[in-house]
Simulated assay, not measured.
Amino acid sequence: MPDISLTTLVVLCLAAAAAGWIDAVVGGGGLLLLPALLLGLPHVPAAHILGTNKAVAIVGTSGAAVTYARKAPVEVRTAVRIGLAALAGSMGGAFFAAGISSEVLRPVIMVVLLGVAAFVMLRPSFGTAADTDKGAVTRARTIAAIVLVGGGIGFYDGLFGPGTGTFLVLALSAVLHLDLVTASATAKIVNVCTNAGALVMFAYQGSVLWQLAALMAVFNLAGALFGARMALRKGSEFVRGVLLVVVFSLVAKLAFDQWTA
Rank of each mutant, 00 (worst) to 15 (best):
G92Y: 02
A174H: 13
S102P: 02
D23A: 03
G40Y: 06
L33T: 05
K253H: 07
N53F: 02
D133V: 10
A203D: 00
V66E: 00
A79L: 07
G51W: 00
P35I: 07
I58P: 01
H48S: 15
N191R: 06
L37T: 00
A261F: 12
K71N: 13
L84Q: 01
T138P: 06
P162I: 05
L12I: 07
E103Q: 13
A47D: 12
A130C: 06
V218Y: 08
G51T: 00
L32V: 15
V190C: 05
T7A: 15
V112G: 08
V74S: 04
F119H: 15
A228N: 08
G197Y: 02
A64C: 08
T260Q: 14
H43G: 10
A24K: 06
Y68T: 08
A183Y: 08
G135S: 09
P124V: 10
T182P: 05
G135K: 10
V218M: 14
A72M: 09
V80E: 02
D23C: 01
F256I: 11
F167M: 15
A65C: 11
T61Q: 04
S5I: 09
Q258Y: 13
F226Y: 14
F256A: 13
T67F: 00
L32H: 05
A183S: 11
G223W: 06
V147G: 07
L12A: 08
T61A: 13
F202L: 05
P45Y: 12
L170D: 00
L33K: 03
S173W: 07
G154M: 04
A187M: 05
M230H: 12
T142P: 00
A261T: 12
A231P: 04
A145E: 08
I143K: 09
I82W: 03
K253F: 11
G30Y: 05
S207N: 12
A64T: 09
T132I: 08
Y68D: 06
T8V: 15
G30C: 08
L243D: 04
K54T: 01
R123H: 12
T61I: 14
A85P: 01
V80R: 02
V175S: 09
V74G: 03
G241P: 02
L6S: 11
P162R: 06
K234Y: 10
G60R: 03
C13M: 14
L170R: 02
S184M: 09
L6V: 14
V251F: 14
A18I: 15
G165M: 06
E237S: 13
I109L: 14
F167E: 02
L168Y: 07
F160S: 07
T8F: 10
G152C: 11
R77H: 10
A255M: 10
L221Q: 02
M216K: 05
P124M: 11
S173Q: 09
A252N: 09
G63E: 03
M216S: 06
D157V: 02
G20Q: 10
V26G: 08
I153L: 14
A252Q: 07
S102V: 07
G227S: 13
